[in-house]
Amino acid sequence: MSFIKKSPWIIHYDGTSCNGCDIETLACLTPLYDVERLGVVNTGNPKHADILLVTGSVNEQSAPVLWQIYNQMANPKVVVAIGICALSGGVFKECYNVKGGVDTVLPVDVYVPGCAARPEAIIDGVAKACEILQQKLDHEREKKRTRKAVKNNG
């Protein structure tokens, strides 16, 4: 993981999960898995976060909340969908109040399957998210540089 230049801060939101994926996400932070030793910090403030972890599918009530959290996060940001519910709706797909996976509301970068997703899989998903975060950062820097060059030449 040497490509990661900064510690990723994560924020977690429970769409309409059954709690299974939630507690596995929390379990990642506790002694057995302890992602904090890799510099991953769980924050409650969207403005501090780089990675948004979403568990569970979305419904009418939680979609605007999710959208708001996403909009409050600073760029660049990465969204990780955790559990089969967040991927497609899973077992609840046919329920009347389920819109479907998280990607019906937000652009999702990493999909972590499983019901419930295992902590190992979640950590792997966050590691992938770090990679994408770095790419996005590089991309943005590149854009800035070209813009500057164009300005200086023109």
């Binding site: 429970d14 309409t16 419904n59 939680s62 046919e94």
Partner: peptide, 13 residues
């Protein structure tokens, strides 16, 4: 209502 899925109704399917 943030977590309501309506799974009681799913029993019909």
């Amino acid at each position: 209502g943030f977590v309501h899925r309506g799974l009681e109704k799913l029993v019909e399917k």
